[in-house]
């Protein structure tokens, strides 16, 4: 072995250590695919958003956390909106409703509908007590392919009704989960529908 080979071996070893630190070590956070953008939590000026209706009861949020999946959505102004678990998501606290918005990854070798029916719904059926599907429809939300799953489930003796709305996107799909007690659901449904219908991708 000559000096050049030894130098290459040392360089390789250093590169592998750096790679390990960058992948699993303390530098792993540096290369996250998306980051929480503070602007995503601010109410936007709806004048510039042609696809979204202006409203006094609804505020417009532009989510700019994940580069290929910027989106715009309207939420009631009196709901408390905070960031969810992952970039591109919101967790919303509201009276009589629990709403979660976020992005989900659909593998390229599957379609959104296949994913919903073959993976997501069976998972819900297994994990939720008293799961029962009420409705499943294919629809279009502002020109985007979408699927709506409505179901009931039981938590601690109460029955809850949930809308899961899947909207196909460029890289990730959007997932909205809007839940309320079954007795409140008829009152909440118009609000839920307004939220869903306000959704649009910004970089189609």
């Amino acid at each position: 072995m000559n000096k050049k080979v030894i130098f290459i071996l040392i360089l390789t070893l250093v590169a592998l250590v750096v790679l390990y630190l960058y992948s699993f070590g303390p530098w792993a956070g540096v290369r996250a695919s998306g980051n929480f953008n503070p602007a995503s939590l601010r109410l936007s000026d709806a004048n510039s958003l042609s696809a979204v209706n202006k409203s006094e009861t609804f505020g417009t949020y532009q989510n700019k956390d994940v580069k290929e999946n910027y989106y715009v959505i309207q939420l009631p102004r009196d709901w408390r909106v905070s960031t969810g678990k992952d970039p591109g998501s919101y967790a919303i606290a509201a009276a009589n409703a629990n709403v979660q918005l976020g992005l989900m990854d659909v593998p390229d070798n599957s379609t959104l509908e296949l994913y919903v029916l073959s993976q997501d719904e069976p998972r819900l059926r297994q994990s939720l007590a008293g799961y029962s599907r009420i409705e499943y429809t294919k629809e279009s939300i502002n020109g985007n392919e979408a699927y709506r799953l409505i179901y009931v489930s039981r938590v601690g003796g109460d029955t809850y009704q949930t809308i899961r709305e899947y909207i196909a996107g460029q890289d990730h799909a959007a997932l909205m989960v809007l839940t309320s007690k079954q007795s409140y659901f008829p009152n909440m449904q118009p609000t839920f529908n307004s939220i869903i219908n306000s959704f649009n991708w910004q970089n189609k």
Partner: peptide
Amino acid sequence: FFTSWFLIIIGISSLLINLFWGK
């Protein structure tokens, strides 16, 4: 990410070693 770059580093390294071996 780790697997792909591991392969790239090992591949380039073995290519260079092959090039300089015995020189």
